[in-house]
Write a protein that binds this DNA or RNA. Structure first.
Lengths: 214, 214
DNA sequence: ACGTACTTGTGTCATACCGTCAGCTTATCT
DNA sequence: AGATAAGCTGACGGTATGACACAAGTACGT
């Protein structure tokens, strides 16, 4: 872990790091409770039992603090790797792989919902730091799916003109966006269970080019 | 068209409507140019050559004005209907349908990019007005895909246990999200052309359950 | 225990945005 | 022209921002 520094370059000690961590924690709570646009430095500081000036000692602005939270999510996203890599995609085992991947990614996204939606926006707005983080959250899964498709192509089970990286990207994007917009599916009267079933089917086929074994 | 009213209940005349429209126009420009969080009422008013007080005469706040812009996008989205309904999904015609749908929806999303990403965020944050708008933008396409799958199920060409509405929803979500995050695909070194090819393939199969005819 | 050097937190300030109001100007109708 | 309503703005109290100097707290050697 790199050393934690204050905005003016000093190295933070034990107490400082605690304060910093408390600020981040309160920011995360506020982001979960109200809209991104309405979260202010003053609110965060007040909730953390400190002053705005203290906040600015550790973060140049709110965005920087959110970026930090996003970095935590990226770190946690490493565990998603296991959901996708070293998996078999043949026959019934493939269906299991798809199911676990869909459930795992959806649950992860919903758990980190409040931060990931800000990451999504900032990335869409073209902020490179956030684009990078967003990419990294999805990267493990993307890489795994991508190489799974590549393997199947090598063994001739999937046509070689299928763009592997693009297909893997589209699938991962689909999963993330589906998790991010449960309300839209609600409006369509789609139950979570049915959504997951549909996603599993699409992922299975997207990777293998074959109907999933039930 | 319902009568345009000011916040204090008066009916806006010709000049007032022009001012209102100019404010919306400038707001749209600002949203395209800088981040959602940084767009202020003062900026909008200044760009429109008027005062902040005038802004508040027509909109209770920035969000309300954005909601208005979103409503315009919803109205324009009606044209997407033609990309999906009354289409054949069999054989080569199906591939054409999928291609036009993918291109149409992606282009639409990219054109209205700056507004739709705010709609996305607000919807994800649970704001019902924005959820409704987001749903409506995607609704025509969703309905069309949904009933296309339903038809194929009736004629026995697709298994009846496939959740039609959920599958259509997942596909539409995939298209919208893919359009919204070109940078992520860039990071994966996926070219736009390959992305579209992958999407076409996934949509084709998602609807018909069969490999697309080239 | 005491003093020193460093870290951490706060009060305050200039600036900018928010949202409202009274009142002035401009258009419309008779 | 006069009456009426629409349209616009300057000004204001309130609040958030971000910077700074300084005060309070902490660690450590003697």
């Amino acid at each position: 872990m790199t050393q934690v520094r204050t905005v003016d370059g000093r190295i933070a000690g034990r107490r400082g790091q605690e304060t910093r961590a408390r600020l981040l924690e309160c920011l995360a709570e506020l982001l979960a409770a109200r809209s991104y646009r309405d979260v202010t430095v003053i609110d965060v500081a007040r909730d953390a039992g400190t002053s705005p000036a203290t906040f600015y000692q550790y973060f140049p602005d709110i965005e920087a603090a959110i970026l930090e939270l996003a970095a935590d999510v990226v770190r946690e996203a490493a565990e998603l790797k296991e959901l996708a890599s070293e998996r078999s995609w043949a026959g019934r085992a493939g269906t299991v792989s798809a199911t676990e991947l869909v459930n795992g990614l959806m649950d992860f996204w919903q758990e980190h919902d409040s931060i990931l939606r800000v990451v999504d926006l900032a990335a869409a707005e073209g902020d490179k730091r956030f684009t990078k983080h967003r990419m990294r959250v999805l990267d493990a899964v993307h890489k795994a799916l991508s190489s799974a498709i590549g393997e199947l192509q090598k063994s001739g089970k999937v046509e070689s003109d299928v763009p592997a990286a693009a297909t893997a990207g589209a699938l991962v994007t689909m999963l993330a966006a589906s998790a991010a917009h449960p309300k839209t599916f609600e409006s369509w009267a789609v139950k979570d269970k049915d959504l997951r079933a549909a996603l599993i089917r699409l992922v299975s086929w997207g990777v293998t080019g074959k109907k999933p074994t039930p």
